[in-house]
Simulated assay, not measured.
Amino acid sequence: MFKQHNKIQVALVDDHPTLMEGLKAILVSNLNVDIAGCFVTGQDMLNYLGLNRVDIVLLDIALPDINGIALCQEIKKKAPDTVILVFSNHSERSIIMQTIQNGASGYLLKNTSLDELRSSIHDVLEGKVVFSKEVQEIISRPSKNELQGPPRLTRREKQVIELLSEGKTSLRIAEELSVSALTIDTHRRNLMQKFAVKNTAELIKAAMLHRLI
């Protein structure tokens, strides 16, 4: 809860300084908080966090040096008690879910109302997980992959996708499995077709979603 003599320390992380200044003004005018700092990069935020108290971070996803999804993990490693509330324009369901998995306590879109922002800050500081109304609607809809269920994979395809998830190239995988690189490329194309994805990154993400790796 907010206390008059012990203001909540809020840090803002966003690569749009003008928007950040506007948000800063809104928070200071409407909530009993102190702005611990405004940061354009994730690394600057982490450097500050190592030496200073921050109760809550309002975090955008798109940053110039590190994406907000990964930054959630780094913040929680460095300061487990610091609460993360994502404040972003990104509305992809997969991104929302990944931020929560990585330690965020809530996700708001930047078109959220002041009342919703105020209540969300209170709630996350009390240990709740919060979503703006629009985000609640997004996460309540299952993704296409979830509706379809996992595709059936051969033993070899499972091996290939596991090795791809380790960052190995087709040539390296071919050497480990004692087959040709052309064979591995064929497996890769077949896997992308089965998962209805366009590249290896999407393939790995889909396989992780279905807990196949």
Rank of each mutant, 00 (worst) to 15 (best):
I95W: 04
Q159G: 14
N32T: 02
M97C: 09
A207Q: 00
L182S: 13
F131L: 03
S132T: 06
R156C: 05
D115H: 08
Q4D: 10
V13K: 00
M20C: 09
E116S: 14
A207L: 01
S178L: 08
S119R: 14
S165T: 08
P142M: 03
L59Y: 10
V13P: 02
E74R: 14
N111G: 03
T112N: 08
I139S: 09
L19Y: 15
N6H: 15
I95Q: 04
K194W: 05
L163M: 14
M192V: 06
V124N: 04
E126K: 13
Y107E: 12
D34C: 01
N47Q: 13
I69K: 01
K77I: 06
K128A: 01
H16T: 11
Q73N: 10
K78Q: 15
S113P: 03
D34I: 00
E137F: 14
F39Q: 07
I66A: 01
A207K: 03
V13C: 14
K78R: 13
I96W: 05
Q98P: 04
V86L: 04
H187M: 10
H122A: 09
Y48P: 00
T41I: 03
F195E: 00
S94K: 05
G22D: 09
K158Q: 11
I138N: 13
A104D: 07
S88R: 07
T82M: 03
K205F: 12
G68Q: 11
L46Y: 05
I96M: 09
L203Q: 02
P150K: 06
V197D: 04
V13Y: 04
S88Q: 09
Q9T: 01
A11S: 09
Q4W: 05
L51D: 10
D34Y: 00
L212M: 13
E92R: 15
Y48H: 13
E74H: 10
P80T: 15
E116F: 00
A70T: 09
D115T: 14
E166T: 15
L114K: 14
K77H: 07
G149V: 08
N32R: 11
L51I: 11
H16D: 07
F39S: 03
K194E: 07
E74D: 14
Q43K: 13
N30I: 02
V86E: 10
I61C: 00
A25I: 07
G167A: 08
N67G: 04
K158R: 13
D34E: 08
N67S: 05
H187P: 03
A25P: 12
V197L: 02
V83C: 11
I139F: 03
L51S: 08
S170K: 03
E202D: 07
G22R: 04
S88V: 09
F131M: 05
G167H: 11
L117W: 07
N67Y: 12
C38F: 00
R172M: 01
